[in-house]
Amino acid sequence: MIYQLSVGRLECVVVSDGQPGPPFEPALGDFFTPDAGVPADVLQDACRGRSTLTCGYNCLFVSTPDGMAVIDTGLGPDFLGYGEYIEPLVGQLDGGMTAAGLSRANLAAVVFTHLHQDHSRGAIWSGDLTFPAASAYAHTSEVAFWSGPVDLPSAQPHVEAARETIRLFGERLHPFEYDAEILPGVRATAAPGHTPGHTAILLQSQGERLLCVGDTFYDPLQLTNPNWATPWDLDAPASIASRRLLLERAVDEQILVHAYHLPFPGLGRVQRKGSTFTWHPLPT
């Protein structure tokens, strides 16, 4: 699946690495748990009959003056970490790139919102770099966290991919700080909490903008309930604060949003509803 759009002079294409559908959609109860602060009865009342969410892996390619870049890279082929059922449903980035006329060999940069395996493994799944000519970019705190001892249980599934990403890119992995311009028209925006260096990416050109929010939210339920955390938020209070700030900004500045895990292509607008928000997918 591919979806083309432009942000000013930045030509973009969303390429799906996969989107498991029924009966393989994950349960809402796996994402919003009592341990993460969402009691089962509260979730049931909010779901209104829903029991699953549609979890996409929406990788965004951006043609910058410094070359083609991709924001996050999906799970990659041969992934069994969620169970054998998932293997044929993800790892589709290469085919999507071919359909979009994109070349792995010519990719200039990989920008990571964070180094969880579903964002980084697509760049290193084979044991070699998927994009051999590309430099990589991740927040300084993200690189430091995954390079050191990681004791948090919810982080354990991601350690191998994160460390392999850091190792394989080596000196071509460039740590950045928040508010840095990573590439022309591509700026890092603070969004810590999900991971220590979790980053939103703001594209801007000729007065147009697109805010890539990574894992700031997994489902529209987190807009109507912005205080909901997930088991994968390493610092839940910080993650909630980042989510509110980014949603407020998207509304106040009328910025188009790209959400990595929402149904393909993950593009939409945010509107305010009292003290909460609503998601409005871009017509496709």
Rank of each mutant, 00 (worst) to 15 (best):
Q4P: 10
L5P: 04
L10M: 10
L10C: 04
E11F: 07
C12L: 06
V14A: 07
V15H: 02
V15N: 07
S16V: 05
P23I: 11
F24I: 00
F24S: 03
P26A: 03
P26C: 04
P26Y: 03
L28D: 05
G29P: 03
T33I: 10
T33F: 08
L43N: 10
L43I: 10
Q44T: 14
A46E: 10
C47K: 13
C47G: 00
G49F: 11
S51I: 09
C59N: 14
T64V: 11
T64R: 11
D66R: 12
D66H: 13
M68Y: 06
D78E: 13
Y85Q: 09
G91S: 08
Q92D: 11
L93Q: 05
L93Y: 07
T98W: 10
T98C: 08
A100R: 05
A105W: 02
V110F: 10
V111L: 09
F112G: 05
T113G: 08
H114N: 15
H116Y: 10
D118G: 03
S120V: 15
G122N: 09
D128K: 15
F131W: 14
F131I: 12
A133T: 14
A138T: 11
A138V: 11
T140K: 14
E142V: 13
A144M: 14
G148F: 07
P149Y: 09
A155W: 13
Q156G: 06
H158S: 15
V159H: 07
E160R: 12
A162P: 14
E164C: 08
G170W: 02
G170L: 01
E171Q: 14
R172W: 00
H174K: 15
P175M: 12
E177D: 15
Y178C: 08
R187P: 00
A188I: 10
T195S: 13
H198S: 13
T199H: 13
T199F: 12
T199V: 10
T199N: 11
Q204C: 03
S205M: 04
E208C: 06
E208P: 01
R209W: 01
L211D: 00
F217L: 11
Y218A: 01
L221W: 07
N227H: 14
P231D: 09
P231G: 09
P231I: 06
W232K: 03
A236W: 02
A236V: 04
S239D: 01
A241W: 01
R243G: 01
R244C: 04
L247S: 06
E248V: 02
V251W: 03
V251R: 04
Q254G: 05
A259C: 05
H261I: 01
L262T: 00
P263T: 02
P265I: 02
G266Y: 06
V270C: 07
Q271S: 12
K273R: 10
G274P: 02
S275V: 07
T278E: 09
W279V: 00
W279T: 05
H280Y: 01
